[in-house]
């Protein structure tokens, strides 16, 4: 099982991670961060494989990925 951490304050809502997730587990949130942006959020955490494409694509290094060893 894998887990991603999204720094919602660093996220700029560009949506590039949403594009690249092969399982379409990411979307832009309805809630706003302190800058007024809709940061990325994960929808179905249990399905995440930890492929880290979202983290690789994120321009702002807002996503970190962890996996069960």
């Amino acid at each position: 099982m894998a887990k991603i951490l999204i720094d919602t304050e660093i996220c700029k809502s560009c949506g590039l991670c949403v594009n690249v997730c092969p399982l379409k587990l990411l979307r832009l949130s309805e809630t706003r961060n302190s800058k007024g942006g809709r940061s990325a959020e994960q929808t179905d955490a249990g399905k995440c494989t930890g492929c880290a494409l979202c983290a690789a694509m994120c321009p702002d290094s807002a996503i970190q990925v962890y996996k069960e060893a």
């Binding site: 880290a52 983290a55 990925v65 996996k67």
Partner: peptide
């Protein structure tokens, strides 16, 4: 949990580039 992708310590927090900009990438 083992880190697959962690923030690089050579990068300092947030940046001033526009959303989706190629520079911070």
């Amino acid at each position: 949990m083992k880190a697959v992708y962690e923030r690089n310590p050579l990068l300092m927090g947030s940046n001033k580039f526009c959303p989706g900009c190629g520079h911070p990438l």
